[in-house]
């Protein structure tokens, strides 16, 4: 292929990583919720969209970007807490398809709600002034804002890792994921842990939404396609595995990017082809545990 240089490959790889960063954020929240609660959260894309809309609304009302980046996930996270407490909690122990159907329906309600309030057409979101423009990263010019998305994702993942590995609450979360019954017998309020984990997962989705808004604007349907892609990422990485979600997210981003270079029409199909191949070789995904779905 003409014009294929190492520089172009490098730039394309970087583009893939930036794209993957958003998949990672979404998939980590999805995986966290599934790993702890065994809830397949079909409303995750709707929470992502809601985060983007709340962020857009805050920006429209003069709130600065950094504050919006903190407030929108907080607001949507609180909504997540309410959803877990009132809608999902009564369904624990009833089999995996109950919360799946519930969140599926919930996603429709959230999307329609946003349509009612904000209309069908969507809004553009300006890139914060300080992050506008492109910088030379050695292999070519790359948008500053996308670099910021990669950095922000890395910081959030680090914070999440410290939270789960270094705090006593994190220890309870990890123990609760492995064997909720024993944790309960030890006198830990597992219900509260699950509540917080669900809230945290939705807040992460909302954060991804706010980060995505300056890239592509906001529209009520924006959560649909990316939810499908995030599910692929969690399946490839192994349902419930955070490390898996991170690695698979970046991998999917790079696969999309590299496919786009050679056959742009195939880039979306490539995601699913990747999933099919991984599942044929490793049915649990990269780091999946057996038996979670049953």
């Amino acid at each position: 292929m003409a014009g294929l240089t190492l520089q172009l490959l490098g730039l394309q790889l970087f583009t893939g990583v930036a794209l993957g960063a958003l998949y990672v954020l979404l998939a980590v929240g999805l995986s966290l919720i599934f790993g702890m609660l065994t809830v397949v959260n079909f409303a995750h894309g709707a929470f992502y969209m809601l985060g983007a809309y709340v962020g857009m609304w805050l920006l429209m009302h003069g709130v600065n970007f950094w504050l919006a980046l903190a407030l929108a996930p907080l607001a949507v996270g609180l909504l997540g807490l309410a959803v877990e407490r009132t809608l999902i909690r009564p369904l624990y122990g009833r089999g995996i398809d109950y919360p799946l159907l519930l969140t599926f329906g919930l996603s429709y309600i959230i999307v329609e709600g946003v349509r009612v309030v904000f209309g069908n057409t969507g809004y553009p979101v300006d890139t914060p002034e300080i992050l506008q423009g492109a910088v030379n990263i050695g292999v070519g010019y790359f948008p500053l804002y996308r670099l910021f998305v990669i950095a922000a994702t890395a910081v959030i993942l680090l914070a999440l890792w410290l939270f789960l590995e270094r705090t006593s609450f994190g220890l309870i979360v990890r123990a609760g994921a492995r064997d909720p019954q024993i944790v309960r017998i030890l006198g830990v309020d597992v219900a509260r842990v699950w509540l917080i984990v669900f809230g945290l997962g939705t807040a992460l989705a909302a954060l991804a939404g706010v980060l995505a808004a300056p890239l592509q604007g906001v529209i009520p349907e924006m959560g649909g396609p990316i939810l499908a892609e995030a599910f692929v990422v969690t399946v490839v990485g192994g349902m419930g595995s955070l490390v898996g979600a991170v690695l698979a997210g970046l991998l999917v981003g790079v696969v999309v990017s590299m496919t786009s270079l050679f056959a742009p029409e195939m880039s979306r199909v490539a995601i699913f082809a990747l999933m099919a191949v991984v599942l044929l070789i490793k049915p649990q995904g990269f780091f999946g545990r057996a038996g979670l779905m049953s």
């Binding site: 394309q12 583009t15 948008p143 890239l215 396609p225 742009p264």
Partner: peptide
């Protein structure tokens, strides 16, 4: 370069054009 209708990300298509 062809992109699907309703695309939200063109970033993967741009470096090649630039090159």
């Amino acid at each position: 370069v062809r992109h699907p209708l309703g695309a939200t990300d063109f970033s993967t298509l741009l470096p090649r054009i630039q090159a």
